[in-house]
């Protein structure tokens, strides 16, 4: 039954955007940008794009920018957005994992969410359910304090926390999230002992930091940029400095091997025809090489970073191993 429903979802989707396709895009097959040997007849109907977060959110905006360039390179069929939200994205990620593997359902996924949710929260998908198309965003985490804070480097924070166990109030967004992993990493590598305060979203976390409820917070570039005038960013957990915050040192260059980030990418179900996967990988690469796309992403404050599907696959599995080790160490999973 479920299988039939999925097919018919797509058919219903076709009807839905028929009005759109009738008005524009007269040219069809001649523009198919495929280099594969056998002639690939894809896509012949609109492609569902499953977003696991609310419309208008960061994930949605990124995908909407991408959509503009998909229409440029694959003008014959549009994307149809479907927002399947809930449980921190787990519901939408599961939908992308269990969709009909015909190439007509692409899902936006976040790492480490797709690693942690099946591991710790019983989410009903696994990282092996996907064929990875590309990574498109790498949003590194930073350690931030108020502008008037007495802490001037991340080492100050660690020293204070070690000298006063449980006294430092450190805010993160969500448990079993990218922030949580960075906190565990920090505790593991430095021996700091802060009190963790869990917030629902970046909005109330930022407000809590600025209002003095917490002393220090872990945030993503995309979120701290909005209140950057009132904050002091101590360090960034990335391999290299960010073009958004060129003056902020990385943990690595100041002596701590810590890289922690949230990455966004796109996937299709594992069993999808390899030719279609290849087509999508090629198309996404073209989009990511487009200078206009990169400019649009920069303007929207999205830390764009492309990684090929093959590499993204390896990266996700490496993250999986790392997370398993860390969570076991802190006895958060059995």
């Amino acid at each position: 039954m479920k299988k039939g429903r999925k097919i018919l979802t797509a058919i219903a989707g076709t009807a839905l955007v028929l009005s759109l396709t009738l008005t524009g895009c007269g040219t069809t097959q001649s523009l198919t940008p495929t280099d594969t040997a056998k002639k690939l007849n894809y896509p012949t109907k609109p492609v569902n794009m499953v977003i696991a977060f609310t419309a208008g959110g960061s994930s949605d905006i990124q995908a909407r920018i991408m959509q503009k360039y998909w229409n440029k390179y694959v003008p014959q069929q549009p994307w149809v957005f479907k927002y399947t939200t809930g449980a921190g994205g787990a519901i939408g990620f599961a939908e992308a994992a269990h969709a009909q593997p015909d190439g007509y359902t692409i899902g936006g996924v976040n790492v480490p969410h797709i690693v942690l949710q099946p591991m710790a929260q019983g989410a009903q998908f696994s990282i092996d359910d996907y064929a990875y198309i590309a990574q498109v965003v790498n949003d590194p985490q930073v350690l931030a304090v108020r502008k008037d804070s007495k802490f001037n480097s991340w080492k100050d924070v660690i020293d204070y926390s070690k000298a006063n166990p449980d006294k430092l109030k450190l805010g993160i967004v969500g448990t079993f999230s990218g922030h949580h992993m960075m906190l565990l990493d920090l505790e593991d590598k430095t021996g700091m002992k802060p009190t963790q305060v869990v917030y629902k979203g970046a909005a109330d976390q930022n407000a809590a930091l600025l209002g003095g409820e917490i002393d220090v917070m872990i945030g993503n570039i995309n979120d701290v940029m909005r209140s950057v005038d009132q904050m002091k960013i101590l360090a960034i957990a990335a391999d290299k400095r960010s073009s958004f915050l060129p003056d902020v040192p990385t943990f690595k260059e100041t002596g701590l091997d810590l890289v922690s980030d949230i990455r966004r990418g796109f996937v299709v179900p594992k069993k999808t025809d390899p030719q279609i996967v290849q087509f999508l990988r090629d198309t996404f690469k073209k989009i990511n090489d487009d200078a206009d796309y990169i400019a649009d992403m920069k303007k929207a404050g999205q830390p764009q970073e492309y990684m090929s599907g093959e590499d993204f696959d390896k990266f996700v599995h490496a993250q999986n191993a790392h997370a398993k080790e860390l969570l076991t160490k802190f006895k958060l999973i059995k």
Partner: peptide, 15 residues
């Protein structure tokens, strides 16, 4: 719902 707002409606085997 379907034409103006383009909100997905529940779908079944036939529609």
């Amino acid at each position: 719902f379907t034409v103006f707002l383009q909100v997905p409606t529940p779908t079944g085997l036939l529609f």
